[in-house]
């Protein structure tokens, strides 16, 4: 039990702190702007971002995109960078029943596989890269 608590605490310590204001995290997790090109690669990568398993998006080169979640096209029009950031970091804060995994949360999770325990799905830099990329998606048409 003690080891478990210790593991959680030490893992949490690695995450950057952030402040939620309304339905957004206005400040960058890293204090810097992300790289939209890197963000695009993360979103398209089915082992890193995992996004296209559930979402479709403006990726003409990627076959077989998911239909379980909203199309990413136009995400930058629908949401501010701060809103996108909170939706990435922990979407359950907006909708507790959401199917969207928390990408930057390691506590209050159940039975995480040892290989992933204490690690967020994406790190702070990756979150910022994805936020930067999604913010460029102004056009709702693919």
């Amino acid at each position: 039990m003690a080891a478990l608590v210790f593991g959680t605490v030490s893992a949490r310590a690695e995450l950057k702190s952030y402040k939620v204001i309304g339905d957004a995290i206005p400040q960058s997790l890293t204090g810097a702007a992300g790289d939209p090109l890197k963000g695009r690669a993360i979103v398209a990568n089915r082992q890193v971002g995992l996004c296209l398993l559930c979402h479709s998006g403006p990726f003409p080169e990627e076959r077989f995109q998911g239909t379980l979640a909203p199309d990413l096209a136009g995400a930058g029009t629908r949401w501010s960078p701060g809103q996108l950031r909170l939706r990435m970091v922990d979407s359950t804060r907006i909708n507790p029943a959401t199917i969207m995994p928390p990408y930057y949360r390691v506590d209050d999770l159940t039975r995480v596989a040892p290989a992933f325990a204490g690690k967020p799905v994406l790190n702070a830099e990756q979150i910022e890269d994805v936020v930067a990329y999604l913010s460029t998606l102004k056009d709702v048409k693919k």
């Binding site: 995992l50 999770l109 995480v112 596989a113």
Partner: peptide
């Protein structure tokens, strides 16, 4: 019905 794993599903 239990949410579980890193993906919390």
């Amino acid at each position: 019905t239990r949410r579980q794993g890193q993906l919390n599903l």
